[in-house]
Amino acid sequence: MSENNPFPNENNTGHFWDDNLRELSNDPPGWWRIGFHASWIFCIIYFILYPALPTLSGYTTGTLGWTQVGEYNEDLAAIDQVRSKWEDQINDPNVTAAMIVADDELRNYTIRSAKVLFGDYCSACHGAGGAGNAAMSVSESGYPVLADDDWLYGGTIEQIQTTITNGRKGIMTPYGARLSAEEIDDLAQHVVALSEGGEHAAGKALFMEPTKGGCFACHGMDAKGMSALGSANLTDVVWRFSPGGLESARHTITHGVNGELMDPQSRNAVMPAFGPLGKNLSEGTIKKLAVYVHQLGGGQ
């Protein structure tokens, strides 16, 4: 083709279309060449400094020693550094949970940081935000609401901390074998009446009679419960075993609570220990959880 090139003094490639449309072989523009050379130089420097090439037994590590997980750990350490101002106080054995509650800044920090812990350890049973988990039927037990002011084992910060550390397992005897069906029904009606501010005469008699119900031994003469035993306050409107009402009360009285050796249908109401006897959470973590639960809405 080049023998009949109509543009002989031009650096074209000898490819023509439509008489004069042709391909030239000019040098690329200067800016383009600068960019090209800068790019490959950058690549080489990058390959030297950073992990880059796979080898048979691993990879080239680069002279900077940079790794992704290293950077991640540095970031974590930086966050811990920021948090240590409060974490150190919380983990100090001389700082009690009550002191944390009393300090505005420390309390706010603790509540925010314990939200995640509560999600990890508590909300599976007690629900997000301590909303509780209601039973779906009379024979189920459900899990207590932590945001209300009704506490089986006491609602002071110390009592909550003890509950979390050691766990709880209250016992109520099954009465199904000891009382007749009518007697159980009378007792159940009395329990319902108590929560509505009244009482049921026949039920009350059974409640106070040591050889029959003898309920006062645990629930107290005034039926308001005892936090040392974890016996429920029967006079308030909050039911430990939801949905509450006659059916629930009858079931609880008949089968008892945590009495599975005597009655297989007994209610199961166990709070596991999170201290050294159980999950073995650190003292600081338990303090945080205690403060969080105390601040949910019903702490005393």
Binding site: G129, A131, G132, V145, D148, D149, D236, L296, G297, G298
Partner: peptide, 18 residues
């Protein structure tokens, strides 16, 4: 307004919102 739980029933029967 607190959303979990939206409200709580207290011992004396009143409703509490957080």
């Amino acid at each position: 307004h607190e959303r979990q739980p939206l409200y709580v029933m207290l011992s004396n029967g009143s409703i509490q919102n957080k």
